[in-house]
């Protein structure tokens, strides 16, 4: 073992904001490409993935109760606002990486989760949400930012939460996917 004593450069730390963004981007890449490796790419990739559509199952009448308890998706019941997450992590509580969208009759208008997806996508496109940055960015550069794949989940309190990720993200986070059209 050799050691460089007196070497002028001790171990340094990657700057925090850069680290968070890189970490998030790599995680998303792995989720996307790792999944792709394990399944054939026969279908075109979709911008938005509604978890419930991707995990639809056929359940007989006798299994209806079990299905309702265990199904991977459920409706959004609290339509007062929706959360747009900047990274695919979830911890219970008020603090989360991202921002809340709450506009009357828009965030989850008419129970359409797609509207919340559109709102969050708009925030990504404008650079207000960026990978791994924990809060909304108020003065992003005036360019069009890339929009990651987004997936709609339902928080335990019934609100919609839009994460960067693909089908399977909600389950991985311990959440249920959002039904694409929630009855009013």
């Amino acid at each position: 073992m050799t050691a460089i004593t007196g070497f002028p450069m001790p171990e340094q730390q990657l700057p925090a904001q850069y680290r968070a963004a890189l970490r998030s981007m790599l995680s998303e890449l792995v989720v996307t490409e790792g999944k792709a490796v394990s399944r054939p790419r026969t279908r075109p990739r979709r911008r938005y993935v509604l978890a419930s559509a991707a995990t639809a199952v056929v359940v007989g009448a006798g299994g209806a109760f079990a299905y309702s308890a265990l199904r991977p998706s459920r409706p959004v019941t609290d339509k007062s606002n929706a959360r747009c997450y900047s990274e695919a992590t979830y911890r219970p509580g008020e603090n989360f990486p991202g921002t809340t969208v709450a506009e009357p009759d828009s965030a989850t208008a008419k129970g359409q989760v797609g509207v919340a997806l559109d709102h969050c996508a708009a925030l990504w496109r404008a650079g207000i949400l960026q990978p791994g940055v924990p809060t909304a960015i108020h003065n992003p550069a005036p360019i069009q930012y890339p929009v990651p794949d987004l997936v709609a989940c339902v928080l335990p309190d019934g609100r919609a939460a839009i994460f960067p990720g693909l089908a399977g993200t909600c389950q991985r986070l311990g959440l249920q996917g959002a039904d694409p059209a929630t009855p009013s």
């Binding site: 995680s27 998303e28 890449l29 792995v30 989720v31 790792g34 490796v37 394990s38």
Partner: peptide, 14 residues
């Protein structure tokens, strides 16, 4: 990670 576990890759990164 190769199975799509982003958290596993993030841990190696950390």
């Amino acid at each position: 990670a190769r199975e799509g576990d982003g958290q596993a890759f993030a841990t190696v990164f950390d």
